[in-house]
């Protein structure tokens, strides 16, 4: 096995997904198969290879520091599941 159910549960926590015990089992099997497959990359010696982050090599895309009118709070909240006083409302966060 490349990955345990415990690992999968940890990753699900990071990704904020909840999995039923059955889903966890299925997910572990599918992920294990994928990880087994991608292992083939280790056939290649890549020690001296520079990683590619962008397919087209470019640098330095900028904008100037000029204000563009904001879309405003009505637009911001247009799709909000829950809004109060111009703010997005979420379940209470305890600090």
């Amino acid at each position: 096995m490349k990955i345990s159910e415990q690992d999968v549960a940890y990753v699900a926590g990071l990704a904020r997904l909840s999995l039923t015990p059955e889903e966890l089992k299925t997910m572990t099997g599918k992920m294990d198969a994928m990880l087994g497959y991608v292992d083939k990359l280790n056939e290649l010696d890549t020690d001296a290879i520079v990683p590619t982050a962008h397919a087209v090599p470019m640098a330095n895309a900028f904008r100037g520091d000029q204000v563009i009118p904001s879309s405003g709070s009505a637009a911001a909240l247009a799709n909000a599941p829950q809004g109060t006083d111009g703010c997005f409302q979420v379940p209470r966060v305890i600090e």
Partner: peptide, 27 residues
């Protein structure tokens, strides 16, 4: 103290009405 945000053109002015200085990028 730039006039605009780091990745969009919204103003950085302090103390405005909630969510008034937003756009698709910073939302």
């Amino acid at each position: 103290t730039t006039a605009t945000k780091i990745f969009c053109g919204c103003s950085t002015a302090f103390g405005q009405a909630p969510n008034s200085q937003t756009c698709p990028v910073c939302l």
